[in-house]
Amino acid sequence: MFGLNETDSISTIQLVETKNNSDCGSMSEDEAKLAISCSYWLEGVLLTVVGCIGILGNLANIIILNSKSVSNFFNTLLSILSFSDLIFITLTVLDYSLIRGKQSLIRGKQSLIRGKQSLIRGKQSLIEVNNLLSEVNNLLLEVNNLLIEVNNLLSEGTYPLCNNI
């Protein structure tokens, strides 16, 4: 739907599990998928694109500000600021796009496994309930047949207890 496949739906089940824990601030499965998609596009794609533009801009600043024709103390301070910003942007882009992305994929796979296990347990419970309802239905049919038989015996007057009345 948003350019994501099953493995990219990072922690849908974790976000949906919040709904089961409390009603306040909970979100549906569709809302959770939208939140994950927005997180992917903002933290994964947009942050990487803006970070790359920032890296290129800071490299240009460092090159221009360190040229001999504009060399003074203030430009040296700006060059140091650009260098520290360059390091920060590089580490941030690496953190969000590589490290957190891999961790999120691992958590997403674990959540999907837990979700599948829950579905299997739910299906087994439904099968057990269905079997119990079938047994109750059979018992009710037997009781109904017995009541019909007792009613026939009472109407014929051949029931053994009717002789004492």
Score class of each variant (00 low, 15 high):
residue 1 M to G: 05
residue 3 G to R: 00
residue 6 E to G: 06
residue 6 E to W: 07
residue 7 T to W: 04
residue 9 S to K: 11
residue 10 I to S: 11
residue 10 I to G: 07
residue 13 I to V: 09
residue 14 Q to T: 08
residue 16 V to H: 14
residue 16 V to T: 03
residue 17 E to I: 00
residue 18 T to L: 14
residue 19 K to E: 09
residue 19 K to P: 00
residue 20 N to D: 10
residue 20 N to Y: 04
residue 21 N to I: 06
residue 23 D to M: 08
residue 26 S to Q: 08
residue 27 M to Q: 06
residue 27 M to S: 03
residue 28 S to T: 09
residue 28 S to E: 03
residue 33 K to V: 01
residue 34 L to Y: 04
residue 34 L to I: 08
residue 34 L to A: 13
residue 36 I to N: 15
residue 39 S to P: 04
residue 42 L to M: 09
residue 43 E to D: 10
residue 44 G to T: 01
residue 44 G to Y: 03
residue 44 G to H: 04
residue 46 L to P: 02
residue 47 L to P: 00
residue 47 L to T: 08
residue 49 V to P: 04
residue 50 V to I: 15
residue 53 I to P: 07
residue 54 G to A: 15
residue 54 G to I: 09
residue 54 G to K: 15
residue 56 L to A: 13
residue 57 G to V: 06
residue 57 G to M: 06
residue 59 L to V: 03
residue 60 A to P: 00
residue 61 N to W: 09
residue 62 I to S: 09
residue 62 I to K: 14
residue 66 N to F: 00
residue 67 S to W: 04
residue 68 K to E: 10
residue 71 S to I: 06
residue 71 S to F: 05
residue 72 N to Q: 07
residue 73 F to L: 14
residue 73 F to Q: 13
residue 73 F to S: 12
residue 74 F to H: 15
residue 75 N to G: 00
residue 76 T to F: 00
residue 76 T to L: 09
residue 77 L to I: 03
residue 78 L to N: 12
residue 79 S to L: 02
residue 80 I to K: 13
residue 81 L to P: 01
residue 82 S to C: 01
residue 82 S to Y: 04
residue 83 F to E: 07
residue 85 D to T: 11
residue 86 L to D: 01
residue 91 L to G: 08
residue 94 L to Q: 12
residue 95 D to V: 00
residue 96 Y to H: 15
residue 99 I to G: 06
residue 99 I to D: 05
residue 101 G to M: 06
residue 102 K to L: 11
residue 102 K to E: 09
residue 103 Q to N: 07
residue 105 L to K: 14
residue 106 I to F: 10
residue 108 G to N: 03
residue 108 G to D: 02
residue 109 K to H: 09
residue 109 K to Y: 13
residue 111 S to E: 15
residue 114 R to P: 02
residue 118 S to C: 04
residue 122 G to I: 01
residue 122 G to P: 02
residue 123 K to D: 05
residue 126 L to E: 05
residue 126 L to I: 02
residue 127 I to S: 06
residue 127 I to D: 07
residue 128 E to R: 12
residue 128 E to F: 06
residue 129 V to P: 08
residue 130 N to P: 04
residue 132 L to M: 05
residue 134 S to G: 08
residue 134 S to L: 11
residue 135 E to D: 13
residue 136 V to M: 05
residue 137 N to Y: 02
residue 137 N to K: 12
residue 139 L to M: 06
residue 140 L to T: 05
residue 140 L to Y: 04
residue 141 L to M: 10
residue 142 E to D: 07
residue 147 L to I: 03
residue 148 I to A: 10
residue 149 E to P: 02
residue 150 V to M: 11
residue 151 N to A: 06
residue 156 E to N: 14
residue 156 E to D: 12
residue 157 G to R: 02
residue 158 T to E: 15
residue 159 Y to A: 04
residue 159 Y to C: 01
residue 160 P to T: 02
residue 161 L to S: 12
residue 161 L to E: 13
residue 163 N to K: 15
residue 164 N to V: 09
residue 164 N to K: 11
